[in-house]
């Protein structure tokens, strides 16, 4: 981690500089929110976890040693929070349903205010939305270790090396988990892929 800009930002964060902290949140909130939602599958939980991730960053920034990039470190905090929350919710049996309906509402509100060019026909859009929900549902049923690798690689487009650093596992483990995750997802969605 030799980026002077990032080192300056880290020093400011360690000095609990308000503006630096706000800049950090602005820069990372979108990617971290998408990561959390794809792992957790619920908007309310994802919103709460997003806040908890940045609170942890604020609390633990002094322990950041720069062995990885700052964003890798934040990803690690976020994935750990997701895994712990998911376990907690499963234990409490609180996690009875994911908010797939919630997802549709959110997508609807976003598409209504977004770009209208190249908009698919209503039937295509309905089909696309249905597929999105099916994929999200299928991802939610994967085991934690497979789901996290799949989201990091295929939704967040991170490299194998970044995933190794985030999860602190060897390259071979990342590859084998990813392969199993994709094959399991394919089996779950096979009627919709042909």
């Amino acid at each position: 981690m030799n980026d002077p800009g990032q080192q300056k930002l880290i020093r400011k964060l360690q000095a609990r500089d308000k503006r630096a902290f706000e800049q950090l949140i602005e820069e990372h909130q979108s990617r971290i929110y998408n990561l959390i939602f794809r792992i957790i599958g619920n908007h309310e939980e994802a919103e709460d976890l997003l806040q908890e991730v940045f609170i942890t960053v604020f609390k633990k920034i002094d322990s950041f040693r720069g062995e990885s990039s700052l964003s890798t470190w934040i990803y690690r905090i976020a994935t750990n929070h997701c895994i712990n929350r998911k376990k907690y919710l499963t234990r409490r049996k609180h996690y009875t349903k994911s908010s797939y309906g919630d997802l549709s509402e959110k997508e609807q509100s976003e598409s209504s205010g977004g770009i209208t060019e190249n908009l698919p026909r209503p039937d295509e859009m309905a089909e696309g939305k249905q597929m999105e929900q099916l994929i999200q549902k299928a991802i939610s049923t994967l085991d934690d270790e497979y789901r996290v690798v799949l989201v990091l690689r295929d939704v967040q487009n991170l490299s194998y090396e970044e995933i190794e650093q985030i999860l602190e596992v060897p390259a071979g483990t990342v590859k084998s988990r990813l392969h199993r995750a994709r094959m399991a997802l394919k089996e779950k969605l096979v009627p919709h892929l042909r």
């Binding site: 308000k18 902290f21 706000e22 949140i25 602005e26 909130q29 979108s30 971290i32 929110y33 998408n34 939602f37 794809r38 919103e47 997003l50 806040q51 940045f54 609170i55 604020f58 959110k106 997508e107 976003e110 597929m131 999105e132 994929i135 999200q136 799949l150 295929d154 939704v155 487009n157 994709r182 997802l185 394919k186 969605l189 096979v190 892929l193 042909r194």
Partner: peptide, 26 residues
């Protein structure tokens, strides 16, 4: 089928984060 799955997964919608995350965290 594998290739189609990969296209669908990588095309998942990018969701906007909630409003005022900075304020809520602070």
């Amino acid at each position: 089928a594998y290739k189609k799955l990969m296209t669908e997964v990588s095309g998942l919608m990018n969701l906007s984060p909630p409003k005022d995350v900075v304020g809520a965290v602070e």
